[in-house]
Design a binder for these strands. Structure first.
Lengths: 194, 194
DNA sequence: GACTGATTAGGATGATTGTCCTAGAAAGAC
DNA sequence: GTCTTTCTAGGACAATCATCCTAATCAGTC
């Protein structure tokens, strides 16, 4: 139980540090210091840095799956669910302006490093893409569902990058309004409902 | 002259390596090997790694300024100039799918590193933003010019990130068509011309 | 209370890093 | 041809890193 707690603490700390500083720039010592344990103890739980990375990816994946499943249950229709997705850039605005998108920046970094876990990290991107595709299908978009899903995903990545660069809150709000307006027009065209 | 050539070679090699692997993951030895010079010779031209980074940023900035100035001269109207900007994601598609946007990924990395040259790198982002703003102003968008500029910039960053993640060429083409359609509607509304 | 396995601490190791130094080669001035 | 400046080479340095190892401590069982 103490072990479980320690392991969980390590993954949580690594998750935040990888997000804030990047994977490569975060050292064993950094994570150990954040959890207040020794490097030796560290090695007992994770034999390599790549193992921690994979654990962090699994955690992030599980977190996002839970988030999406929650929206599937609570939001009444696909359009509202997509809106939930869109609004996370406002909910997480402060963190995004400081460190960008947790998913996009990790994939970018691992790709550049030629890291073996790149595909693994990409599973989170794929999760978002497929979930969004399902929502647009439910909305009645048919074959355009996947295209629209990638459009929303791409939109979120762009907003995160520019928000990080300029730290412009008003920009984020305007972009959310803009994409929601687009979403509404897609919904009307797909359903025929006003 | 030999010195100038060597220095230029170093900057060019660093530019490519920083793009392909990232700034932190590129070592002195990597750049030296790419140019086939010794680390000692290296130090003669650049005293610190940060100096190389700043030189690379200056080069990228100058390259982009030249690119934009070229469009200012060759393209007949602001809408066509913005279209030139949009189409670079197709022209550079292969590199973007491999390493993302050279500007966006650098800013993201330096921000995470808390690097002193973050603001410096952001000057390239700002260059794009201000140039795009000028184009939308010339188009007659008035106060919406800056908002539209950020929209296009954000669009390009999102496309680059998703293209890098999924390696989907068709997605890039569709997104270009989409934004050009939007651009056309903005132009019509701003100018009143068909 | 002794025993066993899980957990922790902290130092050792070898590789890599950015930085620095010194000596020699090249090149141009006089 | 000598001299001075510019350039190049290659090794030395301390710091940092991921990784590994060994010994101590803890918790639960008999």
């Amino acid at each position: 139980m103490a072990a479980k707690a320690t392991r969980q603490q390590i993954v949580d700390a690594a998750d935040e540090l990888f997000y804030a500083r990047g994977f490569a720039a975060t050292s064993f010592a950094d994570i150990a210091a954040a959890v207040s344990i020794s490097r030796g103890n560290f090695y007992y739980h994770f034999k390599t840095k790549d193992e921690i990375l994979d654990a962090v990816i699994e955690k992030r994946l599980a977190d996002r799956e839970r988030l999406l499943a929650g929206w599937d249950e609570t939001a009444p229709d696909p359009a509202r669910r997509i809106e939930c997705f869109v609004r996370i850039v406002i909910a997480n605005q402060t963190k995004i302006m400081a460190h960008g998108c947790p998913v996009g920046t990790l994939v970018t970094e691992l790709t550049k490093l030629g890291h073996a876990s790149t595909d693994n990290a990409n599973r989170i991107m794929t999760l978002f893409r497929d979930w969004l595709t399902r929502q647009f299908e439910d909305l009645g978009c048919g074959t355009a569902a996947r295209e629209n899903a990638l459009h929303v995903l791409s939109w979120s990545q762009g907003v995160a990058t520019v928000a990080q660069a300029f730290g412009d809150e008003a920009f984020v709000r305007r972009e959310v309004e803009r994409i929601l307006q687009w979403l509404e027009s897609v919904r009307q065209q797909a359903t025929g409902n006003p």
